[in-house]
Each structure stands twice: as C-alpha cells, then as structure tokens.
C-alpha cells in the first residue's frame, strides 16, 4: 500500500487487526466459507428487522451476524467492526431498547425486532444530545469506537434510571449517577486513543441535562 492509498478506513482496519491478530485469520476463513456456500446454494433465511424505524426484509446466510447484516447488507456503516469477538464494544447497537454487541449475535435471532444504530440516534442536522456532548467534550480522537461508545452511553443512562445495579453500586437498592458508575458501565467499550476522561465528561453532561 503506497502512502497515496492509505485511507482512514485502511488504517482503521489495521487497528482492528492489531487489537485481535488471532481472530483475523478466522474472519478471512469465515468470509471465504460464506462465498463458497452461497455459490453452492446454502439455504438462505428470511429476516425482517425494523432498523432505525424502517422495516427491512433480508435473505441471509444464517451465519450472518447482526453487525454484518447492518454493515454489509443494509450499508449502515456507522456501526463498526473492531475485534468481532465482543471484547471492544465498537459494534454496540440498541436492540429492543437494550445495548448489545452486534458482532456476537446472529441476525436471524432478531427476526421481527427493533434495532437502533448510531444513524438512528441522530443526524448531522439534528444530533442526539449524546452526539452533541461527545463533540463538545472532544470524546474521541480517531472516531472509530465512537458510534459504539455513544450507543452504549445512551443505554447506560437508561440503565441507571431503571435502577439496574453495577459492580460499583454500593447499595443495590440505590442506583445513582456518578463518574465511577459511568467508568464501570462503559468498560465494555474500548478506546485505543484513550479519550476516556472526555467520554466520561460528555456522558456526565447529558446526565446533568436529563436531571435538570
């Protein structure tokens, strides 16, 4: 690859490979296998999803992860593939109101369900408060983990509001917002640029506004 061809995307994929060198080989195998089986006419499964309020109908190899369905089939590339093993959180989306790792679930398992991705939270013209706060607080550098961070952060505030305890909750019956709670609850979202302190500040901002 010459310098002229170094794209942001290429660098991102390089970063993903560094994060999880071992699984990369298996991803390549999986992709090769997908192509082979499709040409042999493997049974495709119909999957219906509501993604960001829009009903979509897909025919998928059952192996297709929800992440690949979003990115490769629906071209919603806001959601990112980092490790593809549930370790980094870049693929976090909100399904039926809950944040999950879209890489560790099959699209067919979510037939009929409601999915919200970063594209559904807000648009450049009408940003979600969490997106706005990430910009104000500079809660990123390269931006690759950001969609996952934001989907996760939006859900974290909901989880605190719903009284779901965390590892740092002192009294299981009194779940309240704090920076310590944010740090613990966001531990499934890795940021290699280490924008963590600004991410905590951004989430704090939105939590403060929500309370006011």
């Amino acid at each position: 690859m010459t310098a002229d061809h170094v794209t942001r995307r290429g660098l991102m994929q390089g970063g993903g490979a560094l994060l999880a060198a071992a699984p990369l080989a298996s991803q390549a195998q999986a992709q090769a296998a997908t192509t082979a089986s499709v040409s042999k006419g493997a049974p495709m499964t119909p999957v219906e999803l509501t993604v960001n309020g829009r009903e979509v109908h897909l025919q998928l190899d059952p192996r297709t992860s929800l992440l690949d369905a979003l990115r490769e089939h629906l071209k919603l590339t806001g959601t990112k593939k980092g490790c593809d093993h549930g370790q980094c959180g870049a693929c976090t989306v909100i399904v039926e109101g809950r944040r999950i790792n879209s890489c560790l679930t099959l699209a067919v398992m979510h037939d009929g369900e409601d999915v919200t991705t970063i594209e559904g939270l807000g648009t450049p013209e009408a940003l979600h408060p969490m997106q706005k706060a990430f910009i104000v607080h500079d809660g990123y550098q390269c931006g690759y983990c950001t969609p996952g961070q934001i989907c996760s952060a939006v859900s974290v505030l909901e989880e605190i509001k719903a009284g779901i305890p965390s590892h740092v909750t002192e009294d299981l019956d009194k779940v309240t917002f704090s920076a310590a709670e944010v740090r613990e609850r966001m531990s499934g979202n890795i940021c290699r640029c280490a924008a963590y302190s600004n991410i905590v500040a951004a989430i704090g901002d939105v939590a403060g506004e929500a309370e006011a």
Binding site: G89, I100, S155, V156, S166, T169, L172, R185, M186, S187
Partner: peptide
C-alpha cells in the same frame, strides 16, 4: 444479594444484556 453482586462483577453491560 451475592448473586446480584457476582453477576455485575462479570463481563460487560452489553454482554450481560444478552
């Protein structure tokens, strides 16, 4: 309570949701 405590000590928020 020990069960609640053990559960929230494991994995991440995203994984515990699944």
């Amino acid at each position: 309570a020990v069960l609640s405590r053990a559960l929230v000590a494991g994995a991440s928020g995203q994984l515990r949701n699944k």
